[in-house]
Design a protein around this nucleic acid. Sequence first.
DNA 1: CAGAGGCAATAACATTTGTTATCAAATTGA
DNA 2: TCAATTTGATAACAAATGTTATTGCCTCTG
Lengths: 191, 191
Amino acid sequence: MPNTLDYIHKTITSIIEVNNDEWNYFSGLFEVKELKKKEILLHADTICKNIYFVNSGLLRIYFTDNNGRESSFHFVPEHDFATDYESFLQQTPSKYFIQALEDTQVVIISNNMVLDGFKKLRYGEKLGRKLTEKYFILYCKKIQALYTQTPLDRYREMNKLFPFVLQRVPQHYIASYLNISSVHLSRLKNE
Amino acid sequence: MPNTLDYIHKTITSIIEVNNDEWNYFSGLFEVKELKKKEILLHADTICKNIYFVNSGLLRIYFTDNNGRESSFHFVPEHDFATDYESFLQQTPSKYFIQALEDTQVVIISNNMVLDGFKKLRYGEKLGRKLTEKYFILYCKKIQALYTQTPLDRYREMNKLFPFVLQRVPQHYIASYLNISSVHLSRLKNE
DNA sequence: CAGAGGCAATAACATTTGTTATCAAATTGA
DNA sequence: TCAATTTGATAACAAATGTTATTGCCTCTG
């Protein structure tokens, strides 16, 4: 029978090898959380204590500037991980919010589980490294894009990278992700 | 007597503890390289095989877009480390150039030395982690700045963070670091 | 020391992008 | 279902930023 942890198991084992003993130990430790649309999963100025695996739904990671304006940093659809890795790694207050854009079910991987995983999974360190690299590369690409691409370029790129986002996310969030106003995005689309 | 490795020793031991045996082993492995002004230390599309410690002088890390325009990514003055960590970690082709803006002396830390350091230094892993975190945080801040700050804000911030840069770097490099044209930077300064 | 090239300031103009306001359509929630 | 809210498009205008060209100064190099 399909269960709540099928997808996270599938995702993890696509990165590292996990045997039955290992999985049996860890699968008992996961917690599951249901979020209503618009609910906040992580609040800025609090420490990000978990990594979240999205079972279903959609999350948005964003931050606010001094004037309270939001910038969408990342969108996380089902079957992917979400966290503020900077805050999580250092256990320092986060600058980000994580919010559900749809009713969302997440699997919670606590900091303790991660540390435990480094010890008890044969390839735990590798999993950690892979996730870190994934984040690092995400950041690298983002900086490059902001420097070298026009908003229109970034919009097109985003269509390729996250086709799901355009269908499911209000346009002003997409505009803030591209770092332009929603009026401007609307104009760009007419080209 | 002062020698070439004094500063790198000082810098490393400010991050982790290194005893005499450890240092004696590693200090023999460093290589030193002299660069003339404008010389290229790392070329885009090649693999970044080393971490460089700047003994004296000044490096600029930059990349080019499709039209051949340069964006300055980072400036590295004496007594700090320079590398393309993305390329170095994964041993994949770099997107960056590293160039000397002044006559510069660097100490070369090869990939092999780094791997060796992880094993033979008691706190080698910690040193690696700290450097990774430093880069990660640098990237985080850069993204936040690009999203939430105006060019003028970024200029002021940069004055605080890298006071040395403004004195020693041609203004059009600073403009490209701020992601604006040199004409615009010139205008901003008159405020 | 002299010429060449690089650099910064400036002006004039063009383009991009933001802001505000308005309206209609779609969505939501009681 | 219906009112309230959200959303996306559009127009008109304002502000930010880029481009090109010019000038004078400085620096380097032979």
